[in-house]
Amino acid sequence: MMTGDWIDVGALVEIPLRGARTIKAANGEEIAIFRTAGNRLYALVNRCPHKQGHLSQGIVHGEAVTCPLHNWRISLSTGEALGEDEGCVPTIPVRADAGRVLVSRVAMLAMLAAA
């Protein structure tokens, strides 16, 4: 289902609180969509800026996720590594509407074009 500038990628209830789910993007890349305890949605390209760990598999706490490979903490809102570490992963606009998860069409197209 498509709604204008946003692409409906699934039901909000499918993403656990303090958890994440993935969708396929271009070129084998995945996008991880996170849902915080505060019920806020974020989307990041699903690879840690450190060693490409799948951030979707990390523990979500506050507004951050801890990468499962080497415990880098990544800000969900900016994609930047927190603390002593340096690096950044692209973010994708995402929002919830009427119980559905919507990602930005433009951002998805950009990833497709880059692939």
């Binding site: 498509m2 692409i7 499918e14 993007a25 271009a26 998860v101 497709l112």
Partner: peptide, 17 residues
């Protein structure tokens, strides 16, 4: 089962392509 699958039943990528 959700832990092993992508979100959603369809692929937005394919639609975009």
């Amino acid at each position: 089962r959700e832990q092993h699958a992508h979100l959603g039943e369809f692929r937005p990528l394919e639609i975009l392509a």
